[in-house]
Amino acid sequence: MKKRMSVRARTEAIWGLAFIAPTIIGLLILNYYPIFETVWQSLCKTGDFGIGNTFIGLENFRTLFHDKEVFRTLFNSFRYAVLSLPLTVAISLVLAVLLNRKMKMRGVYRTIFFLPMVCAPAAVAMVWKWMFNQDYGLLNHMLGRKVNWVTDPAIAMIAIVIVGVWSSIGNNMILLIGGLQDIPKDYYEAASVDGSTGVHSFFHITIPLLSPMLFFIIQTGIMGALQLFDLPFMIMDQSSRAWPSVKTITYLFYEYAFEKSNRGYGAAIIMFLIAIISLLTFLLQKSEKKWVHYD
C-alpha cells in the first residue's frame, strides 16, 4: 500500500538528497559518464582530442580478437592473479589468526604489517626497484649472489608478486581480524569439550565462519589483480628482456590510449577486460552459496 509522503518526510528526503548530491554528481561525472564514453569510443576510430570520432561498429573488437598481444598480456594478468591471490589470502589469514591472540606488542606488529597500505604505491615501487637492482640492490647484497630479479623473464613475475603480496597483506589482515573477532568464543569452548584441537577447530570453525570475509577478499582481490598496472610500470624498464613476461593488459590499454593515441582500440581492450572481470564475478557469486556461510 502506497502512502503519500508527509511534509516532514518530504523535507527530510530533499535534505537527504542535497547532502548526498556532491557524491551523486561526482559519481555521475567521474564514473558513469566515462563508462558510457568508453563504450562509445570502443566503437569508434577516434580522432585527436576527442574531435572527429567516426563510428566503425565492432571493427576494434574484430582486430582485438586477432591480436596475440592482447591475449599474451591478458595471460600475464591472470598469471599475476593466480600467483598472488592464494599467497595474499594464506599469509594474511595466518597473520590475522596469530595477531588475534593475546600477545606482547600486538599493536606494534599489527602496525608494522599494515604500514605498506599507508605508503603511496608509486613510492613503494620505487623503493622495491632499488632493492631489486641486480648490481647495486640491497637484496642481492644481502643474499650475496646475483639474482636478475627484474630482468630474467623466469623471475620477473615472481618479483612483482612479492611486492604485490607484501603491499596487500596488511589490509586483508585487518579485515580478517575484524572477521575473527565476530566469531563467538563459545564455539571453540564447546568444540574443545568435544575434543577438538587447535588445527581442527581452525578448519571446522574459523574458516567456515570467516568465509563471508574470505569471499569478499577473494572477490576484490581478483578484480584488483586483473587490473594490475602500477607495479610493473614503475619497477620494470621496458628495455628489460623480461618486460614481455610481465606486461599486463591494463598496460597494453595505456600504451594504445595514451602513448599511441589510439583511444578507440584502447577502449575496446578495456571493455574486453571489463567483460572478463564481470564474468568471473558472476561465477564467483554463483559459487557463493556452496561455500560461504552467513550464520
Binding site: 631489486f132 637492482n133 641486480q134 648490481d135 647495486y136 636478475n148 627484474v150 630482468t151 630474467d152 624498464d237 628495455s239 628489460s240 628482456r241 623480461a242
Partner: peptide, 10 residues
C-alpha cells in the same frame, strides 16, 4: 657496455 640486464636496471 654493461650487460643488457644491468642496463635495463640502471
Amino acid at each position: 657496455c654493461p650487460s643488457p640486464d644491468s642496463m635495463a636496471s640502471t
